[in-house]
Amino acid sequence: MSILVSGATRLVVQGITGREGEFHSHAMQAFGTQIVAGVTPGKGGQTALNGSVPVFDTMAEAVREVGANASCIFVPAAAAPDAILEAADAAVALIVCITENIPALDMLRVYHVLRQQGIRLLGPNCPGLTSVAERAKVGIIPNDIHRPGSVGLVSRSGTLTYEVVQAMTDAGIGQSTCVGIGGDPIVGTGFIDVLDMFNEDPETEAMVMIGEIGGEEEERAAAFVKREVRKPMAAFIAGRTAPAGRRMGHAGAIISGGAGTAESKRAALDAAGVAVADSPSHIPQLLRAAGVGG
């Protein structure tokens, strides 16, 4: 078992004929993901990925014709909220939106519409997720940094996630599923959602959480962990040296009105019994100390 994706995931890529969409679709296919369709309005009837995948004009067709049940979105920010809504209307179970710089007010509406429809959205502005054992990846996390194992990882970041995964793999600690929830202020899936899934997932024995400054999601996650989680956990929080009031690359990474500091998040996690690392490279030894094997 794994969370969110598995061998049964039948993926459609929205924006498969674009530069990014095509590049990462090849990588997903190489990793083992079943890509069953692409959608690019106006290019229906063509094929993509060296003729292996049919392209449709609409999500409705992709679902009806080839049974797609998950979508990965690479369309530009101006069109992405509509693409998410189209995927939701077509009733796929999981939507992963990679696109960054989507206006927050657009995401606010999209978030609530999807909640009413009961559809899971990951992102936007996220690297997606990879189920290591099931060889299923939806997104852009590099293929060759993983090692199969029992640690579930959830993060607000992209390359920082790869850094931590690589450090774990180098230390012989494998992963069950790695999930990037995205760096925007409004994202479909939060830390608590993913920690809850890992907590229930028999394949996951320990968890790693990578947070950063801005908002109070890490503090709320810490309260959840204290209440619900009995599996060992390690964490890293980026941005101890970030100045207040500045947006640090990610739209959501900003300390405002004294709230959202790295120290506040570290303290909350520490109080919840989570081992907090000073450097990403310390994560493997913290996991070992908590009794995590290979």
Binding site: S157, G158, L160, A238, R240, P243, G249, D278, S279
Partner: peptide, 29 residues
């Protein structure tokens, strides 16, 4: 380029916002 000027002496060039913040933190450490 996403850039914010600070007061120290070590210039940082990184790909990715989270990793860029982490790099700053480790310089301090």
């Amino acid at each position: 380029i996403n850039f914010i000027k600070l007061d120290g002496s070590i210039g940082c060039m990184v790909n990715g916002a989270g990793l860029a913040m982490t790099t700053m933190d480790l310089v301090k450490l």
